[in-house]
């Protein structure tokens, strides 16, 4: 909002507004398409993972199915439509990605900000916890948690968030550490503004840029990790459609019926790559150190 007026008035900030090539919009567009498919796709395409039609099994992309329709992307070993699986899988991936990142973000930003702003004992303890947890291989911890309990969507979210929040905490702590030295924070303290209010009003808003950039990158990792868990068969219940499960279902047919594993794999890779690039773009624009510019 104010960024616009600043850009118009100050020659110092003007170069930031150079026209970016159209190509750089591609990642955002692709990710947007995925979100759209995840939101609307299941409404348009009906799919029941339990309903199997054995005469339609292992059909190549574009074949007619016994029901009269066309299996545009083929069918899997149990005669289930692959296009529908990819569309429903997109919804699962986005849902789990968003909720895991939201949970990690909430916990991480809160703990990181408290550690960085209040320092003292809280910081000493929290910073050590961050370091110790960071030394843990994230996917291994997720496998242990996901494997130890009954399969459910919530469990997968918790298992993935169990390590996801640390990155948020560390980044936020770093920003809070530098922000607490700013004169406007000192001024609020001299006025006697309570610590929680200072944190909420004078520190947290400035972490938004880097945290959003980080959330994007984290989203890609979570989607990948969820597919990994589902591939191993320890993540989601079998009734939930997931790219990881579809890929796992196709692994015995890789040589002859390649489409079963390959097509959801492509869907997964496209999303990961584009989210990753989008995250890098956001980091470049709102990453660390630029969080405090007027806006």
């Amino acid at each position: 909002m104010a960024g616009l007026t600043v850009a118009v008035q100050g020659p110092r900030t003007a170069p930031r507004r150079v026209r970016r090539p159209l190509l750089s919009l591609v990642p955002a567009l692709v990710v947007g398409c995925y979100l759209l498919v995840a939101a609307v796709g299941p409404v348009l395409i009906h799919y029941d993972p339990v309903h199997t039609s054995l005469e339609d099994r292992l059909l190549a992309p574009g074949s007619r199915v016994s029901g009269g329709g066309t299996a545009w992307l083929g069918t899997d070993g149990l005669g289930r439509d692959l296009l529908a699986q990819i569309v429903y899988g997109a919804r699962t991936a986005v849902l789990i990605g968003v909720s895991t990142v939201a949970l990690s973000c909430l916990v991480g930003v809160l703990l990181g900000a408290v550690a960085g702003y209040f320092r003292g004992v809280a910081d000493a303890v929290l910073a050590r916890i961050f370091d110790v947890l960071l030394a843990f291989p994230a996917i291994l911890l997720a496998i242990v948690i996901a494997g130890a309990f009954r399969r459910s969507v919530l469990l997968v979210v918790v298992a993935l968030a169990a390590t996801g929040w640390i990155t948020f905490a560390r980044v936020t702590r770093g920003i809070a550490l530098s922000l607490r030295e700013r004169p406007w924070v000192d001024a609020a303290r001299v006025l006697g503004v309570p610590g929680r209010t200072v944190l909420a009003r004078h520190v947290l808003p400035f972490t938004a840029g880097p945290v959003v950039a980080l959330a994007t990158l984290e989203f890609a990792l979570v989607v990948l990790a969820e597919a990994g868990l589902s591939f191993l068969g320890i993540g989601l219940p079998a009734s939930t459609v997931s790219w990881g499960q579809t890929i796992a279902n196709g692994k015995e047919y890789l040589e002859t019926q390649w489409w079963i594993s390959t097509l959801p794999g492509i869907a997964l890779s496209l999303l990961i790559v584009n989210v990753g690039i989008l995250g890098d773009q956001l980091t470049a624009r709102y990453g660390r150190g630029r969080s405090d510019r007027t806006g």
Partner: peptide, 17 residues
């Protein structure tokens, strides 16, 4: 309230948002 302070750097003494 009795003791208040004015800082050196005028711009960063005010929350930019």
């Amino acid at each position: 309230r009795a003791v208040q302070m004015v800082f050196q750097d005028p711009r960063s003494s005010l929350n930019p948002r």
